[in-house]
């Protein structure tokens, strides 16, 4: 719950605003540190408690009467950043670092387990990396266009900017198109993607279902009172 403290007297409002900003900044320091680590995938377990500490600080400050960012906005903003970062790690490795040892174990190993597109004829294409039909086009278009734009929009949202909310709506709809387009591609070329894979189809869904951020963000972004975001 976010309320205005009933500070009496001259300058009470300004004092409340300054205290709120300081409290939000303090919580954000924890959450940003946590997100930087969580966005690195393997360091996520160190980042998660830092992030939750930030959430707890924010919640405590709100309970104390300070004007804080709504928890759901905080979760959407940081989750979008983490989602984009994790997607970008895998795809950037595949696009630019396909012959590194870590990629040839991590990505092709993941491919052999969940998605044959990252195992089938891997590193055979002149560009290197995944050679599954259509895969490279998704990578080249989504890393610079979608994920960068979503991260920028999420930062704007976390700053409670109107453009952040609007651009997150735009990029979440782009995310919807990606989900439908990507899964249609995988279905059409299902033999390449799932034949002789350790955990075919259900394994892929179990692994990737946590990336459904756009589906959780859009209902909120379209129903929130947008007046809380400033121009």
């Amino acid at each position: 719950m976010t309320t205005l403290t009933k500070s009496a007297g001259f300058g009470g409002y300004d004092a409340h605003q300054i205290a709120s900003q300081a409290a939000q900044r303090r919580a954000d320091y924890w959450m940003i540190s946590g997100t930087l680590l969580m966005g690195c995938a393997v360091l996520g377990l160190i980042g998660l408690p830092l992030f939750f500490r930030g959430i707890w600080l924010q919640s405590q400050a709100a309970k104390a009467g300070l004007t804080m960012r709504p928890t759901i906005v905080t979760l959407i903003g940081y989750l979008v950043i983490i989602d984009s970062a994790l997607n970008s790690i895998g795809w950037t490795l595949d696009l630019f670092a396909h012959h590194t040892l870590i990629n040839r174990v991590l990505t092709t190993g993941w491919g052999a387990m969940f998605d044959g597109g990252y195992f089938w004829h891997y590193n055979e294409l002149w560009l290197g990396g995944a050679g599954a039909p259509g895969e490279k086009a998704w990578e080249i278009s989504l890393i610079p266009v979608l994920f960068c734009a979503r991260m920028a929009a999420a930062i704007g949202l976390l700053q409670m900017k109107r453009w952040g909310q609007q651009w997150l709506i735009v990029t979440c709809w782009m995310g919807m198109i990606v989900w439908f387009g990507y899964n249609t591609n995988m279905t059409i070329f299902a033999d390449v993607r799932y034949s002789h894979i350790t955990f075919p189809v259900w394994g892929w869904w179990l692994y990737d279902i946590w990336y459904i951020t756009p589906f959780l963000s859009l209902p909120y972004l379209h129903t929130v009172n947008r007046e809380i975001f400033s121009d």
Binding site: M38, A41, V42, L43, G44, L45, G47, L48, F51, T71, I72, L75, I76, Y78, L79, I82, D83, L86, I102, L106, W110, Y207, W210, Y211, I212, T213, L216, P219, Y220
Partner: peptide
């Protein structure tokens, strides 16, 4: 939605941390 976001974030991070090992 807030509850689902909490679950998603936590699962995503735990999954990301354990994928390579």
């Amino acid at each position: 939605l807030q509850r689902a976001l909490f679950v998603c974030l936590t699962c995503l991070v735990i999954e990301g941390a354990f994928t390579l090992p």
